[in-house]
Write a protein that binds this DNA or RNA. Structure first.
Length: 584
RNA sequence: UGGGAUGUAGCCAAGUGGUAAGGCAACGGGUUUUGGCUCCGUCAUUCGAAGGUUCGAACCCUUCCAUCCCAGCCA
């Protein structure tokens, strides 16, 4: 980008030779130490296990939108693959037709790509393997390692035993191979209704690990699958499908979250019993974040019950929500890198995410001026009808961002919070008799505040110092405050959406008996206001990110129209004055 | 009360027998035409607890405590 004056607001994407979508999910700015998974991969490479190959996969079920928790997994799986010159597949774990939809697979593809995951041509579906999986199931039956059970779901539960007592064997457990085969084939042929029979692995009803007490591996579901339509009426369960999908794809390291530790024994049993290629499952702690919920069930509820305006509501921790909010994918990758990877349950503070967002945007967002809570200022000694233009840089630390012209006139608007009739100690902004700098424009001194009958300030009368043009001190005198402004005659009205945490407590998941996380929804999570923007902002593209000086980072929303732009507040700037004032 | 997993600062997290990295947050200060950024400084005599082994223990042993996961024909 040429360092010249221009009118179009530069965007980080346009100013970078590396569009985010093509950089791998693997290049955070900070270099973390080696975590236990990478350590293990290095060890496997050293010992020649898997022939030095690294092949991972990101395996979402298309039953909802991806969120921050998935971001951790995406960065891990695609990151590890990239770091070790390996591959990472995108695999849809679509074995439950009643919960899955095409809309979700579309959003997942978009979100993974946006975050930087590149699966090239390796987009797979567990449903692609249905025939092969069926063959494996028959093989298990022939080995005497699986049987068709006529027990109802409830009866199976009763037979399973409890945490402390062993289970009991089903009366159908010892059917002949021939009978099992016949029954299983008839299950496939659609001769039975949903729930009438299941196929179970024959393992050990007394195992202390409940997962091993003859787990169901196929159930009957007369339902239309979003990919296979009505060709199947029996569907394999997760525990049977996942390990075999990993095996079929030649996965080396099957990374998943801690709640699957118990399932690993079954993962290994299936592959060992069938005698097929055996990847290793490694578990890590899932992500928890303060002030938010990251469970699919809860996110679905927020959407379906209308507590938010959709999966991409900017308050949602979904990737589409964060994207719309203005969070750059680079910030998310940096976040995932900074939170580390371990096996201890943990809850990361939201401030960690905010830091990553600000860190990236500070370096990559153009600075512009907007007044969100305007109060009119008349500059009494400025000639009526006169308009000047000030050249203002788009970025204080990066000349390549160029600059734009900003009009100035007799009537301007400043932030209501930048004036006090009776300023507290250490208040550096405007007050009666006090001089401040209008950023890149002039020094002004407040002469008088005009109040209405209720005592509300309606306008400020000020005078300016013509010698201070550009905001330079004419005689070396200092002003303590510099405030932003917008010319009244040139201001561009806009809808601005100010977001706060969706929940007002650190852990909305910890609702006591009889209450729910919904009771903690922050009623002020969204405030819509009318703001005034400097005219250069008329040309922003949807999705473009800027800093409104002294206020925060904002992103132009897709709801914008030609007449009326809409902005989402991505994050505020750090505000040490607010902190100071609060302390008194 | 069965099995599994995990406990290092307010929050993440290194550390794997030689005397507690780093980051976030917080706090103090310098700088500043964003009360932003940035820079400098402070922040664990102690690693869930108690015993033991050792010249030496967050790391090894024993016991105890706490938290999380598992009784779907969900993933």
């Amino acid at each position: 980008m040429a360092p010249e004056t221009k009118s179009a607001v530069p965007s980080p994407a346009a100013g970078s030779s590396n569009p985010s979508s093509t950089t791998a999910a693997a290049e955070p700015a900070s270099k973390p130490g080696v975590d236990f998974i990478r350590a293990r991969i290095m060890e496997d490479n050293a010992t020649g296990r898997y022939d030095g190959k690294v092949h991972t996969r990101f395996p979402p079920e298309p039953n909802g939108y991806l969120h921050l928790g998935h971001a951790k997994s995406i960065c891990l799986n695609f990151g590890v693959a990239k770091e070790f010159s390996g591959l990472c597949n995108l695999r849809f774990d679509d074995t439950n037709p009643t919960k899955e939809e095409q809309e979700y697979v579309d959003s997942i593809r978009e979100d993974v790509h946006w975050l930087g995951g590149d699966w090239q041509d390796r987009e797979f579906y567990a449903s692609n393997y249905f025939e092969q999986l069926y063959e494996y199931a028959e093989q298990l039956i022939k080995m005497g390692k699986a049987y068709v059970d006529d027990l109802s779901a409830e009866e199976i539960r009763e037979h399973r035993g409890t945490l402390t007592e062993p289970g009991r064997e089903s009366p159908w457990r010892n059917r002949s191979v021939e009978e099992n085969l016949d029954l299983f084939r008839r299950m496939r042929a659609g001769e039975f209704a949903d729930g009438e029979r299941v196929l179970r692995a024959k393992i050990n009803m007394a195992s202390p690990n409940l997962v091993m007490r003859d787990p169901t591996i196929y159930r009957i579901r007369h339902a239309e699958h979003h990919r296979t339509g009505n060709t199947w009426c029996i569907y394999p369960m997760y525990d049977f499908t996942h390990c075999l999908s990993d095996s079929i794809e030649g996965i080396t390291h099957s990374l998943c979250t801690l709640e699957f530790v118990n399932n690993r024994e079954l993962y290994d049993w299936v592959l060992e019993t069938l005698g097929v290629y055996h990847p290793q499952q490694i578990e890590f702690a899932r992500l928890n974040l303060t002030y938010t919920v990251l469970s699919k069930r809860k996110l679905i509820q927020l959407v379906k019950e209308g507590h938010v305006q959709g999966w991409d509501d900017p308050r949602m921790p979904t990737l589409s929500g964060l994207r719309r909010r203005g969070v750059p994918p680079e910030a998310l990758r940096e976040f995932c890198s900074r939170i580390g990877l371990a096996r201890a349950d943990s809850t990361v503070e939201y401030s960690m995410l905010e830091f990553c967002v600000r860190e990236h945007l500070n370096a990559h967002a153009a600075r512009v001026m907007a007044v969100l809570d305007p109060i009119k200022v008349i500059i009494e000694n400025y000639p009526e009808g006169q308009v000047e233009e000030f050249d203002m840089p788009y970025h204080p630390e990066d000349e390549s961002y160029g600059s734009r012209k900003v009009p100035f006139s007799r009537e301007i608007y400043i932030e209501r919070d930048d004036f006090r009739l009776d300023p507290p100690k250490k208040y550096h902004r405007l007050a009666p008799g006090v001089e401040v700098r209008l950023r890149y424009a002039y020094f002004i001194t407040c002469r008088e505040a005009v109040l209405d009958e209720n005592g509300n300030i309606t306008e400020l009368r000020c005078v300016y110092d013509p010698e201070s043009r550009g905001g330079q001190s004419p005689d070396g005198r200092k002003v303590k405050g510099t405030i932003h402004w917008v010319s009244g005659a040139h201001a561009l009205p806009a809808e601005v959406r100010l977001y706060e945490q969706l929940f007002s407590v650190e852990n909305p998941n910890a609702a006591p008996e009889g209450q729910s996380f919904l009771d903690y929804i922050n009623p002020q999570s969204l405030t819509v206001i009318e703001g005034l923007l400097e005219p250069a902002l008329a040309e922003l593209a949807v999705g473009q990110k800027v800093q409104f000086e002294r206020l925060g980072y904002f992103c132009k929303d897709k709801d914008s129209t030609a007449e009326r732009p809409v902005f989402n507040r991505t994050a505020t700037l750090r505000d040490t004055w607010a902190k100071l004032e609060k302390k008194g």
